[in-house]
């Protein structure tokens, strides 16, 4: 994580680096991704790996904010396009908070981030009926350290696939 902290000073380099690094960790501890369900790897178009690695399944928020930042709009536009193309999936949008807030408030903040993400995708044509939101508050950090290099990665929304819809 120290290396990440050092590189974060260049935001352009980091966006790609982080999405790769974090996607790697996230898959380890998230069963039921499309990949686990046998839906293919990073090179397979339409797979969960395709979404997380090639499209970008997450973006980050400012402290105590649920406003979708300008630098996240590109990722969300690509996500919407991808989700509209692969319309067989149901979608769970996760909202997360960093640890610099109290537990209950952060549950609410994560919920607001998930809703903002869902609304953004819906406005770009992803059917609301396919989407569900869940807040994990500060209970599921991906980056573990005691400074801002980690906190900024934990304030996130993650678009996940819950498998092919019926």
């Amino acid at each position: 994580m120290r290396r990440i902290a050092a590189i974060t000073r260049n935001p352009l380099v980091v966006a790609l680096f982080l999405s790769l690094a974090i996607a790697g960790c996230a898959n380890k501890k998230t069963p039921n991704t499309a990949a686990d369900l046998g839906l293919g790897g990073a090179s397979t178009p339409g797979s969960s790996q395709d979404l997380s690695v090639n499209v970008g399944d997450r973006f980050f928020f400012d402290t105590d904010s649920s406003v979708v930042r300008a630098d996240a709009q590109g990722i969300l536009a690509r996500q919407a396009q991808w989700l509209n193309k692969y319309s067989q999936y149901r979608i769970v949008v996760e909202g997360h908070a960093d640890e610099r807030g109290t537990r209950e408030y952060n549950l609410a903040l994560g919920a607001r981030r998930a809703a903002a993400t869902r609304d953004y995708l819906a406005a770009r044509g992803v059917a609301a009926s396919r989407m569900k939101t869940i807040s994990y508050g500060k209970e599921r950090p991906v980056a573990v350290c005691d400074d801002i290099s980690c906190w900024s990665q934990n304030r996130r929304a993650v678009t996940t696939l819950s498998g092919a819809g019926s």
Partner: peptide
């Protein structure tokens, strides 16, 4: 329909007061 959280009892133990998530993301 949405997440419920932050529960606490009333002093007489007869009620639970808590937050309920609204569809717009507020609580």
């Amino acid at each position: 329909p949405g997440m419920t959280f932050a529960p606490r009892f009333s002093p007489d133990g007869q009620k639970v007061i808590m937050s309920l998530l609204r569809d717009d993301g507020n609580s």
